[in-house]
Nucleic acid binder design. Structure first.
Lengths: 213, 213
DNA sequence: AAAAACACTTACAGCTCGTGTAAGGCTTTT
DNA sequence: AAAAGCCTTACACGAGCTGTAAGTGTTTTT
């Protein structure tokens, strides 16, 4: 069974989360004393750490860096408003967790989409018995979408994935890459599509085939 | 259980083969009457056909073409001297059979090497948890080697795989591609190496790490 | 031991394909 | 209807794969 550690100071949120994870079959460690958090985490050796960024004392951000330096445990960073108590949000979170865990298991590096698999290192797409090689940028885009499990992905994050910087965003370049991605997705008959969230970003959602009059 | 049909007129060889396959857990159909062979084969609907090229009556070659036209059953062509009764040869043959069958099963297109897998469509190589994308030509070469399961592969066949023709062989171009392939194999720490068979071709064999004084 | 045949290496130039740029059209919102 | 956001297409640059060429090793043969 996989161990997940929760680092979240708000008690209500923490217990809510803990419940969700336990029901999903994970072993959960809750951090309740916010002193030497890094030490506590390392000693309980979880497979994944859920980290809220607004912590008392040591900032979540510096903690994250400390962890990255001292171990290779994957850390999933949450902002408090990202996983409100709505049940559908919970599902999304669980999807992300599953993906991250799978990645860090030995045979990792295969991301799961609806009806296909994506290899994160080569951007090979496995779909319907075939396998296709995606161009790098399209692979990166699909990767980010899958890591967000159907959630809206802001443009800055897409740019970050493509060019490693969120500083200067070339709206148009991103746009072109998305267009190309759509075309190959259509060509492969994928059951998902990219829909724009005006002014914010994009989501990858199940495709509704036009069965109207 | 997988069905394999044997088309071989020499009785001794045929029964030898049949034994080998049955021990390996396949269902075996032996063709003993060499009239309307194609019809017989189609009616027993095997998953794989083992075909000896020197047949009486209809030549093995034309039979092969007939089969390819009328069905998509994979045909493995053997020359009589290719699988003499030596036990190690038997192993090689079984390896080839396993590979061909795997390819034609739904999830097919993954070839098995010692310690790695090769995707035949994208030439993605899965090794030690990583996955790497091979350049097309190197992928084709590795593919041919694996399909021959450690057997010597003649140069003409390598050229055929690379350029689709066996007519004009550019020895040097082949050579260069092999060199490149060796380099990437070394870089990936693969436990196999390519050794030349003077004047004939090349084989892919287990690597002996130099543990001498 | 010299020659011939074969095997290997390296550097270079052409080409393919993915990518960013640019310019303009379309659609939704105000 | 004007503005803001989104989309499409065509073009040119560049990275990486490939074949060519020329030359060096290595093994076999004479």
């Amino acid at each position: 069974m996989k161990r997940i550690a929760i680092v979240e100071d708000e008690r209500f949120m923490r217990e809510e989360l803990s419940d969700l994870l336990k029901k999903a079959g994970y072993a959960v460690d809750e951090i309740t004393v916010f002193d030497d958090v890094a030490g506590q985490l390392l000693s309980c050796a979880p497979d994944l750490i859920l980290l809220d960024l607004n912590l008392p004392g040591e900032s979540g951000f510096s903690l994250c860096r400390t962890l990255k330096r001292q171990s290779s445990v994957p850390v999933l960073v949450l902002r408090a408003d990202e996983y409100l108590t709505k049940p559908c949000r919970g599902e999304r979170l669980l999807a992300r967790i599953r993906n991250v865990l799978k990645r860090f298991e030995g045979r990792g590096n295969l991301l799961e989409g609806t009806g296909y698999l994506l290899d994160r290192q080569t951007y090979t797409l496995y779909i319907q018995g075939r396998s296709v090689l995606l161009p790098k940028n399209q692979g990166k885009l699909l990767e980010v979408f899958l890591l967000h499990g159907g959630e809206t992905v802001p443009k800055e994050e897409l740019c970050l994935a493509l060019w490693g910087t969120t500083e200067y965003i070339d709206e148009n370049a991103l746009q072109v890459n998305l267009t190309r991605m759509k075309k190959t997705m259509a060509g492969l008959g994928m059951a998902q599509q990219i829909v724009p969230m005006r002014g914010v970003g994009y989501r990858l959602v199940a495709k509704e085939d036009g069965n109207e009059a």
